[in-house]
Design a protein around this nucleic acid. Sequence first.
DNA 1: CCCAATCTGTACAACGTTATATACGTTGCG
DNA 2: CGCAACGTATATAACGTTGTACAGATTGGG
Lengths: 344, 344
Amino acid sequence: MTVSLKDVAERAGVSIKTVSNVVNNYRHVTPAMRARVQLAIDELGYRPNLTARHLRKGRTGIIALAVPELGNPYFAELAGSVIDVAAEHEYTVLLDHTGGRREQEVLVSQGFRARVIDGLILSPIELETEDLLGRDQDAPLVLLGEREYDLPYDHIAIDNVAAARMAVRHLLGLGRSTIAFLGARTDRVNEPSHLRLRGWRAELKAAGLPAPDSLIAPTGGWDHANGADAMNQLLDSGVTPDAVFAYNDLIAIGAMRVLSERGLRVPEDVAVVGFDDITEGRYGAVTLTTISPDKQTIARLAVRSVVNRLLGTGDPVGNGSRELRADFRLVERESTLGRRQDGR
Amino acid sequence: MTVSLKDVAERAGVSIKTVSNVVNNYRHVTPAMRARVQLAIDELGYRPNLTARHLRKGRTGIIALAVPELGNPYFAELAGSVIDVAAEHEYTVLLDHTGGRREQEVLVSQGFRARVIDGLILSPIELETEDLLGRDQDAPLVLLGEREYDLPYDHIAIDNVAAARMAVRHLLGLGRSTIAFLGARTDRVNEPSHLRLRGWRAELKAAGLPAPDSLIAPTGGWDHANGADAMNQLLDSGVTPDAVFAYNDLIAIGAMRVLSERGLRVPEDVAVVGFDDITEGRYGAVTLTTISPDKQTIARLAVRSVVNRLLGTGDPVGNGSRELRADFRLVERESTLGRRQDGR
DNA sequence: CCCAATCTGTACAACGTTATATACGTTGCG
DNA sequence: CGCAACGTATATAACGTTGTACAGATTGGG
């Protein structure tokens, strides 16, 4: 059924290696020979067996991308970009999701979920430094996202503190002074590196405003429902902020829904800023002001980092870690500016 | 660096095959021998080379899932389910997206984008029957979604006509009579099998109502922006429906945004029904009534179909195609019922 | 106590590919 | 013209694993 180099070689009356040379565009093949072999290849419909090739070459041409949750459009959109960029480098992407659970993240980092990969791009949530210390995989690893590790792996992210500060500054500039933070993590013992929260604190402090814990609403997760819950809890606690900065867009949108249900207008009563710039935020009844990370660049840097380490190029240090920064910008929409009068 | 069966065998002082037997839980191995080999395995940290195993066994343990666009939450959520179900069967999922472009879909179906796979689950948009006739791949293929093909491949979908009829019936039951359809395809020469449009026509006819083309708004794609464009065009053409049935939720949400911009209230002036039941629809200012396909079942049926064909079981016919149906239901929310008074 | 049946472990070949070493022409140059 | 240098194709050996065939050890039944 499946046709191999051997079959093509027999048909063309040449050796196996010659066919291999033609397939791989090896330099020293006469045009006549190339044509003859190519004919046999076409006639038989030969297609190389990548498994065998990869066994021989020691590479599979597959890199894995592990994100917390595909249901979050930010990660789905990012995954799409990674797939496209990887394709440019002739790599295929194997996509996995961890649910943001530490156990799954460890399994993925150790290569247990997908063991046929050349490299790995991981966006961790709960993973700890110690989980990676014992990593014995030779496949290069690149880390994505907000968490900080002191480890010899490349890390790609935007400047989360600066981005958060920009978001809060925007709200301050609109005259808001009671700015809540939605989406702190509470399920961890040791305070995680929570850069966006840090940025919120720093900017409030710089403005001479208090940043009391009563303005911080923790969430158990990072989707609409968590944002709605957090908003309800905050309002139920008696606090009525005049602005909300959310950990991500889903939380922000969930919060906006609750605000609407409870008769509060956005942005007149409460202005809202999110984080991620997912498409969804551009089409609500009130479009969402948000921090827009450059996903294209993140995807590009991540894939390049893995590919370069695989090729052994572009990395003079050889083993050191690098902090690679992608750009971001603040996209101002109706949830802080209000709807324009022309309605369009 | 990487440790193979040979290394373990040398360390344990046994043959390679014996180590292989231990790794594979072969029956006839004495406990003593098993322990001895296992010790060597643990000491060296041996992990099987899956590439070699797959070459030998002729399978890779990877199935591909190709969807039009990961940015569409419906496909992202579906992909998440497929990954989980595949993991239960010890398969890993390689995710690809086609952009809904015929060319890409053909490449994927021929296995050119990812050539290391045992099977393929494809959700086509533009793919034609003839594109699959010449398929010479031995990897089993399963088709997902609305399109209909007369080909020896399993096809998994909900009953799109019945679902569309249920959606339209719901609107009729609310007293609406001018029901537009948003999201017809226009970019194809021969009228595609457009089951949801067919259901819309059928239900209107059954109610004795006209279904003029003026109520059908074509779109170039299937996301928010296309929905917004279509809604604008429809309204600009002078038609003001009292209800809209959209091809999917993204189109519906894009349309709702435009309705709001143009001062039309949902559902008082225009009721809206979508299709897919993506999470986004549950958290807008007006939550979206929609057809909810059973994604879990779709994922389960798709993976099972591929796996069964790979195992050569559960398929008495051997080569025949089957139509596998998943359930759906209508989820009634504010875009048709209005917001409840209590606000929660 | 012997022979057959079973259990346990091994040697070897194969999966399809590419790398290495080599053979055989052909050319170029002094 | 002779020899080096090069261009072209081939044979052989791997990559790491599992299946097949078999040899030696152990067991059981008569």
